[in-house]
Amino acid sequence: MKIAHLILAHAAPAQLSKLIGALAHQDAYVFVHLDQKADLSAFGFLLESKNVVLVPARIRVGWGAYSIVEATLQGFRAIAHSGIHFDYVNLLSGADYPLKSAGEIHDFFSRNNGHNFMEYHRVSDEWTEAIPRLTGYHLTNYQFPGKHLAEKWLNKLLPARTMPAGLEAVGRSQWMTLTMDAVQYILAYLDDHPEVIRYFKLTWAPDEIIFQTILYNSPFRSSLVNDNLRYIDWSKGGASPKVLTEEDFDRLSDSGKLFARKFDLAQFPTVLSKLDRKFGITNYKASLNGGGKL
């Protein structure tokens, strides 16, 4: 069971190194997309670590923009073109951390081989708050003077947008674990449907909808499990989830999930140390002998 962990990172090299170490396994590779805005010199270990690959095409990522989808797709392409047969692609952020040992994670996907794990709800009736993302025009992915005024007039003068290609929209969390076959399907689908790319470039936070929608409207629907295997605490009600601390340890331990987010090693290191001890997570240094290229 070979797993490619795809990490979207933009900061905190020490925390990223710890995450990579926790995922280390003989059948695991880690592909890191490092935001183009980040200083590569602080992440030199990515070029020196065994089974770690820095995704060569780095995207300048903006919050809520299609650029997050582009960064993910660059990671998918790097994995697909690596020459290695992977069974699963596991999408993580640099602020995530496993709640199981690497061996247990690989065993889980071996037992559940062929299933695709992601959170998805129908926008039409289960996640209706997302409807304006799809019907309105959003210029989040673009930077030019007068952008907000242009967006205002687009929404005032033009009719509401509709989903292309007969797609039924579903989505929620962008973090997921997909079979390599599903990832290959997504890449081929977008190559064949440029109108879908154009549509989602004008959608706010499309990373929470596009991949789920493609797979939900595909032959892979029967393989979907509506569980992204992540513990995420939205109880604070903000635009971002709660930063997890030692006070969350019992809930994390009892969650039964494979991963959690989000963590801050600099401010709250104790919770990660306790998770290491609880679940037998071995932290290998990311700067192992070996190259960062395949």
Rank of each mutant, 00 (worst) to 15 (best):
71 A>S: 15
73 L>F: 14
86 F>N: 02
202 L>Q: 09
287 S>A: 13
148 H>N: 14
284 Y>T: 00
215 L>M: 05
97 Y>I: 02
15 Q>W: 02
61 V>K: 04
11 A>W: 10
170 V>S: 11
55 V>Q: 05
127 W>D: 06
30 V>N: 01
255 S>I: 09
196 V>L: 01
169 A>V: 11
111 R>H: 14
161 R>M: 06
74 Q>G: 03
216 Y>S: 04
274 K>A: 05
178 L>R: 11
180 M>N: 13
231 Y>K: 01
256 G>V: 12
125 D>I: 05
93 S>Q: 07
139 L>E: 03
155 N>R: 11
215 L>F: 07
268 F>I: 00
144 F>Q: 11
292 G>R: 04
53 V>D: 00
15 Q>Y: 01
23 L>K: 03
152 K>L: 14
97 Y>E: 00
99 L>S: 08
19 L>P: 05
171 G>D: 08
86 F>S: 03
258 L>A: 09
139 L>R: 09
59 I>W: 07
92 L>P: 12
66 Y>K: 09
1 M>G: 10
112 N>G: 02
18 K>W: 03
208 E>Q: 14
273 S>P: 00
101 S>H: 03
202 L>Y: 12
115 H>K: 15
225 V>A: 09
82 S>E: 08
40 L>G: 10
149 L>H: 13
193 H>F: 07
98 P>A: 04
90 N>K: 01
15 Q>I: 02
92 L>N: 15
172 R>C: 12
8 L>P: 02
96 D>N: 08
164 P>W: 07
44 G>Y: 03
60 R>I: 01
152 K>M: 12
174 Q>Y: 08
41 S>E: 13
